[in-house]
């Protein structure tokens, strides 16, 4: 699980162009949106693409997305339970 979490952080930094942020800067339980990492709705779409492309998970309902994308913890948990690749 820890491995998946740091893999996710690296992928997020790359996919979202978070140039000034390092893997160590992202806390597992910190909010990704709003006050935490400060991601926005366009980033949510990018994360949806990332889930589909790298883990074979299709998120079509934005409400589902909202609960999954809360933090690295929630994201890693959902991926480990639902991944198809």
């Amino acid at each position: 699980m820890e491995e998946l979490k740091s893999e996710l952080k690296a992928k997020i930094i790359e996919a979202l162009n978070l140039e000034e942020i390092a893997v160590e800067d992202i806390e597992n339980d910190a909010p990704l949106f709003g006050d935490g990492l400060g991601l926005d709705s366009i980033d949510a779409l990018e994360l949806t693409v990332l889930l589909d492309k790298d883990y074979g998970i299709k998120v079509t309902d934005p409400k589902v997305g909202k609960t999954i994308f809360q933090s690295i913890d929630t994201l890693a948990h959902y991926i480990s339970e639902n991944r198809t690749k």
Binding site: A15, I42, L45, E46, K53
Partner: peptide
Amino acid sequence: EDFLSPTAFI
């Protein structure tokens, strides 16, 4: 046409 990232389109 798969896995397209929306940022470039926007």
